[in-house]
Design a binder for these strands. Structure first.
Length: 468
RNA sequence: GGCCCCGUCGUCUAGCGGCCUAGGAUACUGGGUUUUCAUCCCAGAGAUCGGGGGUUCGAAUCCCCCCGGGGUCACCA
């Protein structure tokens, strides 16, 4: 049987980093097995639905290059792939279960359920449904839900591909609602029915689903369906080890994109979360990941998402990338013209960790005016002396016909000989005068990029400023 | 709290009974290259493998208990 896997995000907010993580592992496994990777939209919660969320998820996955074979609008024999488009299906299956005595209708009001929960909690009991409607024969209708009838005794167990055998006592499992009173299925019913109809062979999802898996297993058993293989990936964590969340960590894929993380770097980083390439290799391509992917190398400990290491990895990718390719990628991060990006890129390529840093690193080159601050540099010279030094540099520069790093260096050196200044002092003074900053790319290259006229203007401006 | 999962340097991890006086990466510190920054190179510090019992000639690796962390307990997914 050929492998079919899926991701099933809910369009309830920003495209989530966890979705990318799960998608990556599903995608890699599908590719390795030459199987199918399916995108299914779990939009059954009408109250939490967010307008553009599905679109954004799709855009994010495309950005990452994790392409899918079926869904939500891409053909496939077992669609549609949005759950709200298949409501009758779930209703039919729920009815089938009720008719078979494996589920029952329940008309307990939300108020009663809340009261029940509160009472149980005050008695320090585990909150769960008391089975009031279990033995009643109710007709389907408004304000009626369907609940799974969980056996009172015995155990439900299943095998998780990376964690081994996991067993739950049936008495600990609640009679979960499978069909809500609005006749929409809950996640449990919908995902089990869909996974079966879509012939999903491996359910690869996050660890947070581990404790509801027995309910799913019970559903499969009630229907008499064959179980898929379950794989629960470790949960990405905040620095305090709690489940990764908006409050404590950036989780939006849109944010990572806007920050200038390269999709291939983000994917590479994600692949090292809870998984390791044989041979201590940390930088690897998606193709290498696919080739070497192995469930046995999944670590079940929840990894902390460390943006510092992501930054390092992103920088590695930027440095490795060709200039031409980088220029293309930079276009959406700056208003600087393409030719100018290409021209100054060599100065900043190895200084960028994120593409969004390009403007900050290069803006001084293109600015019309800068306001250098001289007070903190070359303190052993008086302002007047510094101003004169800048004038000497201007004179030397004006004598050179060519404008390249070599001629600039020669001019600077001849000025320096007259001034009898140290290299570091004169270069630092010049650097601040032409850039406004004490840290820039190499001076000659920087001056060359700024251009002759502007350099001379700025040196004179600096001189005037010092004399004020 | 019940149930379930997990526990190797700050962080990501290698390790699946002897090759481990625990390796790599990142972050950090120092040094080198250098006109500043960054890159690059070298070095250092950093984990008695959560703790305690076993099993074994031998345990980070197997077993038990404890402790710690996390997840989950909705007409949300």
């Amino acid at each position: 049987m050929s492998v079919r896997v899926r991701i099933a995000p809910s369009p309830t907010g920003e495209p989530h980093i966890g979705t990318a993580y799960t998608a990556l592992f599903n995608f890699a496994f599908a590719k390795q097995e030459k199987g199918k990777f399916i995108l299914r939209i779990e939009d059954t919660d009408q109250t939490r639905l967010v307008q553009d969320a599905e679109k954004k998820i799709i855009e994010a996955l495309k950005w990452l290059g994790l392409s899918w074979d079926e869904g939500p609008d891409v053909g496939g024999p077992r669609g549609p792939y949005r759950q709200t488009e298949r409501l009758e299906t779930y209703q039919e299956y729920a009815r089938e279960l009720v008719n078979a005595g494996k589920a029952y209708f329940c008309d307990c009001s939300p108020e009663r359920l809340k009261r029940l929960r509160d009472e149980q909690q005050s008695r320090k009991e585990v909150p769960r449904y008391d089975g009031k409607c279990r033995a009643r024969i109710l007709k389907e209708g408004p304000n009626i839900v369907a609940r799974l009838s969980v056996p009172e005794e015995g155990v439900t167990s299943f095998r998780d591909q990376v964690r081994g055998e996991i067993t739950f006592q049936n008495k600990d499992i609640d009679d979960t609602i499978i069909l809500k009173s609005d006749k929409f299925p809950t996640y449990h019913l919908a995902s089990v029915v869909d996974d079966h109809i879509m012939e999903i062979t491996h359910v690869i999802r996050a660890e947070e689903w581990l404790s509801s898996t027995p309910k799913h297993v019970l559903l499969y058993q009630a229907f008499g369906w064959e179980l898929p293989t379950f794989v629960h990936l470790p949960l990405l964590r905040n620095p305090d080890r709690s489940k990764i969340s908006k409050r404590k960590n950036p989780i939006s894929l849109t944010w990572y994109r806007e920050q200038g993380y390269l999709p291939e770097a983000l994917l590479n980083y994600l692949a090292t979360m809870g998984w390791s390439m044989p041979g201590d290799k940390e930088i690897f391509t998606l193709e290498e990941f696919i080739k070497n992917f192995d469930f046995g190398r999944i670590d079940t400990t929840g990894p902390i998402f460390d943006t510092q290491k992501l930054d390092w990895m992103n920088g590695e990718y930027i440095r490795k990338m060709s200039y031409g390719e980088l220029v293309q990628r930079l276009k959406e991060f700056t208003k600087v013209k393409k030719e100018d990006i290409a021209r100054v890129l060599p100065l900043v390529k190895e200084r960028m960790k994120k593409l969004s840093e390009f403007d900050g690193l290069t803006s001084f080159i293109f600015k019309e005016e800068i306001s250098p601050e001289f007070s903190e540099i070359v303190k052993n010279y008086a302002n007047k002396v510094k101003a004169e030094a800048l004038e000497r540099v201007v004179e030397a520069l004006q004598k050179t016909a060519d404008w390249n790093t070599h001629s600039i260096e020669k001019a600077l050196e001849s000025a320096r000989e007259k001034l009898k200044w140290s290299k570091s002092d004169l270069y630092m003074l010049t650097r601040v005068a032409i850039s406004g900053s004490s840290t820039t790319p190499p001076l000659f290259e920087t001056m060359e990029a700024v251009g002759r006229d502007k350099v001379i203007d700025r040196l004179r401006g600096g001189s005037r400023r010092l004399l004020k």
